[in-house]
Design a protein around this nucleic acid. Structure first.
Lengths: 122, 122
DNA sequence: TCGCATCGATTACGGATGTAGTCAATAACG
DNA sequence: CGTTATTGACTACATCCGTAATCGATGCGA
């Protein structure tokens, strides 16, 4: 039952999902593009993620190399499921209908959705 | 730009979306099924929702009748869009693929998705 | 060897959140 | 008319979150 990952923590996780393991420094550099955080802030987020048992660290000299313990797919699956349950009573099609009405569906999405459906019907 | 609605606040909003206007008492009764909250807790959440300008209250004798100021569809649209952006780079089909792989798609969903796609292609 | 740079750990602090308790006003009841 | 119940307003308080500053240990360069 991994605990909830906050918005800021997620930015760090994304960095670790892109490349692992990384030292705190590497992560700070990598996320600098998105957020204007000090190195200390990144380190705080890392220790909170450690406390939540969603990352682990291996010592490398006098620093640590961090790596994710939960796969991005698992996290994403949990969040997606949670949203669908909270807002759409667990039904997926209203979600898609919602997004379609917002014009969030690209032509590519439509093609891919058709593929998915085709796969499911067999 | 209405502010963020918290998890607990959302429970109150759902009650108001189901029926409005309602007095604090009615809401407390209605949400009692889900959460074991005191009446005071519900009132606190109501005043926070007032502060966030997502509900309004009209006086009725010595109490207030509360009603939502934002439509459920608008809220849901925002949250759905946010999730798709955060986790799927704004692309919808990976989300559906994700949910499909979790077996979250019912036969009914599949049929409705086909309808949605049919509508979009015309 | 002595000071500086760097690392993780600890502490800080304001705002949001969850979950109430208490208070003052007032309506209703006896 | 006095008491009780009810209502919204205000206050409380622990935890989480965002964003860091500071501290103590240690390695590195002069």
């Amino acid at each position: 039952m991994s605990e909830k990952i906050s918005e800021a923590e997620l930015v760090v996780m994304e960095s670790l999902w892109e490349a692992a393991p990384q030292a705190a420094n590497d992560i700070a550099d990598r996320v600098a593009a998105d957020r204007d955080w000090s190195l200390q802030t990144v380190k705080t987020l890392l220790s909170r993620l450690m406390a939540k048992d969603v990352i682990a660290a291996d010592q490398d000299g006098r620093r640590f190399l961090y790596r994710p313990l939960v796969a991005r797919e698992d996290y994403v699956a949990g969040e997606s499921g949670r949203l669908v349950n909270r807002l759409f009573g667990g039904r997926v099609s209203p979600l898609v209908a919602q997004l379609a009405s917002q014009d969030q569906l690209t032509a590519e999405d439509i093609a891919e959705l058709e593929e998915i459906l085709k796969g499911l019907k067999s």
